[in-house]
Design a protein around this nucleic acid. Structure first.
Length: 182
DNA sequence: CTCTCGATTAGCT
DNA sequence: GCTAATCGAGAGA
């Protein structure tokens, strides 16, 4: 599966996190595809293997969590076959469980903004460094398919956010937004 | 070792 | 709209 297909596949799936301070989950509403050794916006660009990016080269099913701007964690699902660095960045979820816990973690923030952004997703669900390289079939962080169907035409494609440095790759419409009607 | 800058966010103008 | 916050990966010397 190409990363763009995987990014669309994960829309509507549930991201579940069990932490010592409690359980929280959300339905994935926004993703971005990163992938292949040609994508200049991807950390795996040019087959660049480092301590940080090594997990991107693993077979799909692991978490890739890294720190950005010195303060925000980004959560990715590794999706490629072995040695092909492909991943899906989860940019937004709608919290569906553990709301009391999330309200505490996101104190003072309006509910609609609890997890509307890649850094916010991690802040709301308690995702951090300890989840990096974690197995997404494990018991602390996992993905559930509960059969939610996305209506035809409900997903908007746009270029990816914050990757202007990537030249023509920044123009690829690899961001997928499921706009849930109210 | 040193330097640069980022797959962002919140807060202020 | 603008930018400070904050730190480690990655690159180069």
């Amino acid at each position: 599966m190409k990363p763009t297909q995987a990014a669309q596949f994960f829309l509507g799936k549930f991201l579940c996190v069990q932490e010592p301070d409690g359980y929280a989950e959300g339905i994935i509403t926004e993703t971005e595809a990163y992938g292949g050794v040609r994508d200049a916006a991807s950390h795996g660009f040019g087959n660049r293997r480092t301590d940080r990016t090594e997990i991107m080269f693993a077979p799909g099913g692991a978490a890739y969590v890294y720190l950005c701007y010195g303060m925000h964690w980004m959560f990715n699902i590794v999706t490629g076959p072995l040695n092909s660095p492909e991943a899906v960045l989860v940019r937004a979820v709608q919290i569906t469980g553990g709301k009391e816990l999330v309200r505490r973690r996101r104190r003072g923030v309006a509910e609609k903004d609890w997890a509307s952004g890649p850094g916010r997703v991690c802040a709301a669900l308690g995702i951090g460094r300890h989840h990096n390289r974690g197995d997404l079939l494990g018991e602390t962080i996992w993905i559930e398919d509960r059969g939610v169907k996305i209506p035809r035409g409900a997903v908007k494609r746009t270029p990816r956010i914050g990757v202007d440095y990537a030249g023509i790759w920044a123009l690829k419409p690899w961001r997928f937004v499921w706009e849930i009607p109210k």
